[in-house]
């Protein structure tokens, strides 16, 4: 079950999208989210579709993998689509089914909103699939740097985030281990009445907390012994570089935005 989830998962590959500057990717996604709201007819949605498909091809992520991973979300999209069909009463009736009338407007709106939702999900997933979480953190830290002037703890937040990211796989593994150890002692995590299942969380959570605190303590000691004393006077190893590639993709997005603006009805 967990294996198939692709949210927040990074799939390494050698592609143009993978190589982009994370700042560019973050900005691209942000602007894309704004731009997509300009689309309101078949042509403009078509253009957005071409752009999205283009990004997917460039990213070299297998479409099948995307499809499998986003299956749960697609259900939600289908649900939205149905809601619109049933409750929007605009334009001509194109289908009559007893008390159920399907209007042209409903069909159109349902289709458009579902598409918009699909594109949003696809592009944001592409961001996390092609960018290591740490690059996203770096990109965000850089983009948010101006806010340091107002005493926002950008460095601390970024460090916290990168350490959390670093420890996610470790904690997942740990959770799995403790679950198995307790299952071997007769805890049933998967079946039985709800009350019992809620109770079975305790033998999982307590050890997990205990070990996380221990880890945190040891990590703090290790960081201190390696000379960590806050963000001041610290240099950064990771340098981001903005290339022609990034300019090109940003330009493509601008072109898309302009086209959408001109072609929308």
């Amino acid at each position: 079950m967990m294996d198939k989830m692709i949210f927040g998962r990074y799939v390494p590959a050698d592609s143009a999208i993978h190589k982009m500057d994370p700042r560019a990717k973050l900005m691209l996604v942000f602007l894309f989210v704004c731009t997509i709201f300009l689309a309101n007819n078949v042509v403009t949605y078509g253009l957005v579709a071409i752009f999205t498909i283009g990004l997917i091809i460039l990213s070299k992520i297998p479409p099948r993998f995307l499809y499998n991973g986003l299956k749960p979300v697609f259900l939600l999209i289908v649900f939205t689509f149905l809601l619109h069909i049933l409750f929007t009463k605009e334009g001509e009736v194109i289908f009559e089914f007893g008390i159920l009338n399907i209007y042209e407007g409903g069909l159109k709106q349902g289709a458009f909103i579902s598409l918009r939702f699909t594109f949003l999900i696809l592009v944001t997933s592409l961001l996390t699939l092609t960018t290591t979480p740490i690059s996203i953190t770096d990109g965000m830290e850089e983009l948010l740097n101006p806010f340091k002037k107002w005493k926002l703890p950008i460095h601390e937040l970024a460090l916290m985030m990168s350490i959390s990211l670093r420890f996610i796989p470790t904690l997942m593994e740990e959770t799995d281990k403790i679950m198995k150890a307790q299952a071997a002692r007769g805890v049933d995590f998967t079946s039985g009445p709800l009350k019992d299942r809620v109770k079975s969380i305790v033998p999982l959570l307590v050890p997990l907390f205990v070990s996380s605190f221990k880890r945190a303590e040891e990590l703090a000691t290790a960081m201190e012994s390696r000379g960590y004393r806050g963000g001041e006077g610290r240099t950064k190893y990771r340098q981001l570089s903005w290339n022609t590639r990034d300019n090109l993709l940003m330009a493509a997005l601008v072109v898309l935005a302009v086209l959408l603006f001109l072609l929308r009805s």
């Binding site: 740490i134 040891e218 000379g227 240099t235």
Partner: peptide, 25 residues
């Protein structure tokens, strides 16, 4: 081994102490 690995990758981890000491990139 796990509780002293600060960086998200090998190179980041090795660089951590250097960053703390303000060494040039």
């Amino acid at each position: 081994p796990d509780n002293q690995f600060v960086g998200t990758t090998v190179e980041d981890d090795v660089a951590f102490g250097l960053e703390n000491n303000g060494i040039q990139q």
